Computed example of a mutant assay.
Amino acid sequence: MDPVRYRILGTTQALRGDGTPVPVGGARLRALLTVLALRPGRTVPAAVLVDEVWGADPPADATGALQALVGRLRRTLGADAITSAEGGYRLCAAADDIDLHRFERLAGEGVRALADGDPGKAAVVLDDALALWCG
């Protein structure tokens, strides 16, 4: 499967390298993807994932339900998109593959450009950052 980019600034989406959307599915699947995308390349403990996805009403077999949800997300995004690691799961993506992290980087570059006295560059970079927001 092509590299996938993730949007979480607005409705959670996954996009193939050519920009076509990957159908992610229901609210819980999008919630799981969002929680993982907030921490790209870092292992998120299973307990945190259960809490973030189900909140105060987790299923009786939360571990099994989480495993099933991760399995569905892997089938959607590709088997290598989510890895298992010591008590949790990790989204295999670079920070720049996720719009939130790209936004933060661009916003920082824009602020630095302003501080360096380059308002033209700042305007371009900050416009690029704002364009990442959907909805």
Rank of each mutant, 00 (worst) to 15 (best):
H101V: 09
A131H: 11
D97V: 00
L49H: 04
V35S: 06
L66T: 06
P119G: 09
G41L: 03
A27E: 14
L130K: 13
V50L: 02
G108S: 15
A115V: 12
V53G: 03
T11K: 12
A14C: 03
A65M: 04
D96Q: 08
A46Q: 11
D80L: 12
P3D: 14
A85E: 15
G108F: 03
Y6Q: 02
P119M: 13
P58T: 08
R42N: 09
A62K: 06
L114R: 12
V4R: 02
D128S: 15
D2I: 03
R16L: 14
D18K: 12
F103N: 07
I8G: 06
A37R: 07
T11Y: 01
R28H: 10
A31W: 00
T34N: 11
D118P: 01
V4C: 02
G25C: 04
W133T: 12
L132F: 04
V44S: 07
R7I: 06
A107E: 14
G41D: 01
G88W: 03
V48A: 09
A46S: 15
D97P: 05
R30W: 02
W133C: 11
G41E: 03
P59K: 13
L36R: 02
V111Y: 09
L9Y: 08
V24S: 00
L100F: 07
R30E: 04
V48K: 02
R74C: 05
A46V: 06
G41V: 03
A68I: 08
D61S: 07
L77A: 01
E109L: 15
D61G: 07
P23C: 05
L33P: 01
L9N: 09
R102G: 03
C134S: 13
E104S: 13
L91C: 05
T20V: 15
L73N: 02
G120S: 11
R28C: 00
A37N: 08
D128W: 06
P119I: 14
L91Q: 01
L100V: 06
P58N: 08
A60K: 13
L66K: 02
A131N: 13
L126K: 09
P45T: 10
V50K: 03
I8R: 12
G120I: 10
V48H: 06
C92K: 09
V111K: 11
L66I: 07
A122F: 10
G88H: 06
G26H: 08
E109N: 10
A107D: 13
I8H: 05
P40N: 07
E52G: 00
R42W: 07
G17R: 11
V70G: 02
P40T: 11
L9A: 06
P21M: 05
L126G: 08
P59I: 11
D116T: 11
K121E: 15
E109A: 15
I82K: 01
T76W: 02
L77C: 04
D118L: 09
A115M: 12
A56L: 13
R42S: 14
L33Q: 01
L126M: 15
D18V: 10
A62R: 12
G135M: 01
V124I: 10
V24L: 05
G87I: 08
G17I: 00
D128A: 15
V111T: 14
A129V: 10
